[in-house]
């Protein structure tokens, strides 16, 4: 009996201390993990979800249309293809107004300019083209998934959606 006790390196006192500390550390860890999950925002529905923009024929080829509910511009090119730009400047997040006479989006905060047809940066501090939202066209209606903004480094033809 005494031999066994001598062989144990961990005393009962030390074991209980480690057990208590371990339990406490687990509890604190669980609290912070739970807190991190708790404060994650819920992005379903409304802006951040799928927004119905309207029927295909409502948008003339070559037009720029602001869809306020989804915070995006639905741009239809001359061939009838759609692209949806998030209205948010890629520099620091200001809303970008459309300026018809310049055929461009110009940010009032720090002067970034984006091309109407591609969303690419033509001036100012913005680091990348305007983010786009995926477009789904079903039964002649345009649906835009605003919960899934796509960052891109340049414009390419496969970003255009056709009905």
């Amino acid at each position: 009996m005494t031999e066994n006790q001598n062989k144990t390196k961990l005393s009962r006192h030390q074991f209980l201390g480690i057990a208590w500390f371990g339990a406490l550390a687990t509890l604190v860890g669980e609290f912070f993990a739970g807190l991190l999950v708790f404060i994650q925002p819920n992005l379903e529905g409304g802006f951040g979800g799928i927004v119905r923009a309207g029927k295909v024929e409502e948008f003339l080829p070559g037009s720029v249309n602001l869809v306020q509910a989804g915070r995006f511009y639905l741009v239809r090119n001359g061939e009838g293809g759609f692209i949806a730009y998030w209205q948010r400047c890629t520099h620091l997040g200001c809303s970008v107004p459309y300026e018809e006479e310049q055929a461009a989006f110009r940010c009032p905060c720090h002067g970034s300019v984006f091309d109407e047809h591609t969303g690419e940066v033509t001036g100012g501090p913005a680091p990348r083209p305007m983010d786009i939202f995926p477009i789904e066209i079903t039964d002649g209606e345009v649906f835009v998934d605003t919960g899934n903004p796509q960052e891109r480094s340049a414009f390419s033809d496969d970003q255009i959606a056709y009905g």
Partner: peptide, 13 residues
């Protein structure tokens, strides 16, 4: 940024 805003943009959250 997401945790601070509680969403994709400045709003009620």
């Amino acid at each position: 940024q997401k945790i601070l805003l509680g969403g994709a943009e400045v709003g009620q959250e």
